[in-house]
Design a protein around this nucleic acid. Sequence first.
DNA 1: GTTTTCCGATTGGAAAAACCTATCGAACAC
DNA 2: GTGTTCGATAGGTTTTTCCAATCGGAAAAC
Lengths: 311, 311
Amino acid sequence: MPPDPTIRQLRYFAMLAQTGHYRRAAERLGITQPSLSLQIAGLEETLGLRLVERGRGGAVLTPAGREVLERAARILDQVAALGDIAARLRTGMAGTIRLGATATLGPYILPNVARRLHDRFPDLRLFIHEAAPRRLFDDLLAGRHDLILTQLPVASDRLRVERLFREPMNLVVARSHPFAGRGRVTDADLAGQTVLTLSSAFALHAQIEALCHELGANLRQDYEGTSLDALRQMAAMGMGLAFLPALYVRSEITGRGDDVAVLQFRQDRFTRSIGLAWRTGSGDEASYRRMAELVREVAADDFRGLVVPER
Amino acid sequence: MPPDPTIRQLRYFAMLAQTGHYRRAAERLGITQPSLSLQIAGLEETLGLRLVERGRGGAVLTPAGREVLERAARILDQVAALGDIAARLRTGMAGTIRLGATATLGPYILPNVARRLHDRFPDLRLFIHEAAPRRLFDDLLAGRHDLILTQLPVASDRLRVERLFREPMNLVVARSHPFAGRGRVTDADLAGQTVLTLSSAFALHAQIEALCHELGANLRQDYEGTSLDALRQMAAMGMGLAFLPALYVRSEITGRGDDVAVLQFRQDRFTRSIGLAWRTGSGDEASYRRMAELVREVAADDFRGLVVPER
DNA sequence: GTTTTCCGATTGGAAAAACCTATCGAACAC
DNA sequence: GTGTTCGATAGGTTTTTCCAATCGGAAAAC
C-alpha cells in the first residue's frame, strides 16, 4: 500500500498553485523555500506524479497537478471544517448527545426539554432512546448512551448522578370504582385493594411493591404492564388501582370524559425521584451539568406546582 | 491559527473507533500501542477535545469523538480517492488536457480526435480552446495551454514539436468566376488574380502572401478575414480567390448547390504543415507523444487520401 | 557579450516528531 | 489476594522537517 500524502504537503502544494511561485508561497506559509521544495518533491514522490512544471515564469501546474489540486483543495476545506466543528464542540454544547430516557417519563417531559435545548443551543442535537430503567442502566454502562434520564436511585461507582426533581404519584381508578367520587384516599383506604403495576424492569415496580406491603394492599401478580397507557387501560377496566406519575396524568388524562378518575394520595408526598446519570469521566462533565440545569428549568417553568424541585 | 490534525492521526483515530480497542487498533495499524496512544492524545490536543473515553470495556467515543469521527472518515475517503486519481493519472492518459487549436483546423478534425480519444482513454478529457496560431503560441508559452494543434512552423527552443501531416490547400472561387467550370488551375492562371486571405495572426497569411508574390497575384489588402467561413463568403461574392484547407472544404463544402467552386491547384503539392507543440519538459512527454500518434491515426483513418502523412 | 539578478535545487546539520521497548498503575477476574 | 488486561508513561532511536548556506542555470540588465 502506498503511503498517504500529508495534509502539510497538500497545504503547501495548494499555496504553491495559488501563488505560482516557490519563494512567495514559502514566505506566505512562513517557511523557507528549501522546505517548500522538499515538501512538494515529497508529494510528487508519494503520488508518483509530476505536479509542477518548474521554470522561468514561475511554477506552472501540470495537467496532473491541476487534477490533484482540485482534490487537495476539497480535502483542505474539509480539514478546515473539522477545525470549525471542533471549535464549536469545545463549548460542550454542540454535536449529538445520545440520551436514554425512561418510557414512564420521557414522552411527557422531553418535548419541552428538546425545544428549550434547541432554542438555547442550536448546535446541540438529542438522540433519544426510550427504554425501561433497567435497560437504560445497562446501556449507559456499556457506552450505548451518553446520558440517561431515569428514576432514582441509580447505583454504581462508575456513574455520576444529578438529582432533578421529585414527581408525585397519582392514584388512578376506574370510573365505576367506589373511590371514583372521592377527591382523596388515605393509607387505610388502600388496605386490601388490588394494585396494578409495571414490569419489574421499571423502578416503579419495586416502589409500588414496597408501598403495597406497607399498606396491606395486594399487588396483582398476573399482570405486569410495559407502558403507562396499558396500565391505565387495565385500571379503567376495573382490574385494580394504579399509581401513575403526575406528568403522565397531566399529559394524558384531561379530567373530563376520561375512563378513569384521578385521586390525591398522601398529598404529593408519595413521589418518585428523577435524575440524570452519566459515566464518570465520560464526555464533558460541564455540559452534562448544564443539561441537568436545563431540565430543572423546564420542570420549574413548564411544570410548576406539579413536581417538587430538588437541590 | 491552530495546527492541523494530521492524516495519520485521523487514520489512527478512525481505526481506534472501529475496533474500540487500543491494542487491537495498534496491531491492525502495524504499530505498537504506545505509538497509538500518543497519536490519539496528540489529536485530542490539537482539537482541544476529549474524543475517547478510556476505560475497562475498551475505548468508547465521546459525543465529540463521534462528531469528529464522521468528518475524519470523510476526509480519509477523499484521501483514498486522491490516491485512486493519482494511480490513473500515472498512466498519463487521465485528467484534463488543455488543448489550443487553430480555428482553421480544430473544428474540422477535433471532433474525430475527441471521439477516438474518449474511446481509447475514457479518463482523459480535452478542454479545447480555439484561437489564431499567434495567440496559441503566446498562450502555450505562458502556460495557459498544455498542448497546441497548429500550423507549422512553430519556433522556440522552449517548445517541442511533433509534425503530424500536411494538409493540401484548395482553391475556391465564386460560381460566377471564369475558373469555376475548370477542374484545375495552373500557376500561370493565377497571375494578376485577386486573392483573399485571413488576418496576419494566422500562419496561413504569410504563406498565401508568399505564394501571391511568387505567382504575381494580388493579395487583397482591404480585407483580412478571421474565419474560413467568412473567407468563403467573400469568395462567393466574387471579391477574389481564396485558398482553403482541404479539411475545411471536405467538411463545409458539399460540392452540390454550393455558392463556390473548388479547384485543384498544384495537385496537392501546395500544402500547409500541421503539428502538435508543447513546452519542453511540461507534463508527461510520453502522453503528449501518444496524443500526436492518435491524431495521426485519425488523419490516416478518417481523412485518408485527403491529407499527406508525415513521419 | 559580459554581468547581475532571480529562480528552484541541493547540502549539512539541528530540531521536532514518530516510533519502539520496557514498565507502570489501575481495574477487573478468579 | 493473585494474575490478567487495559491504556499511560519513560527513555532512547530513527525519521522527518526545517533552516541557513550554497549551487547552477536561465533570464535580464548593462
